[in-house]
Amino acid sequence: MFSGLVITGQTVAFFLIALFLIACGVMLLSMKKVIYMAISIGGVFIGAAAVYILLEADFLAFAQVLVYAGAITIMLLFAIMLTKHDELERPAVITAHPVWSVLGTAGLGLIVLWVVKFSGIKWPQATADSPFQGQDNVKMIGESLFSQYVIPFELVSVVLIVALVGAITLANKEEKN
């Protein structure tokens, strides 16, 4: 499966991180308490940030930590606390729904894995040299964002504002007549 794998620091790091990520994902699925699930997603987000670093996306790794592991996880915790957070996940009853869910998910996963591994697609060979060698990641992103992608960037900022206002409006308690 991993024929021709050369053990280097990077590969070791990758496998450790991948293991951690999958472990956190499985925890997310298997935990009983909602609060533990939220914490395990925090682990997933941090692990993902590590993967980003391996992929030489430094800025995104920091952004991932800040936005996901920081803001979003905290927000989720607040949401959990505001609702019935002490309620346990009801014991799973084996009905058609979870069975079909397993089948569907596994089917999709198998298809994707087959495509990745066994379909004979010639994936681009990773080069030892990074294509971004010696370049400032943040500077590159900044230049691209404010030149080529300036309009989407502005639009996204509008979306964020709208989402912010919308979220406040929705969560705001309605005035009792």
């Binding site: 569907g104 089917g107 999709l108």
Partner: peptide, 9 residues
Amino acid sequence: GLVTLVGAV
């Protein structure tokens, strides 16, 4: 969602 997934698969 499940039906959609199964259909898509």
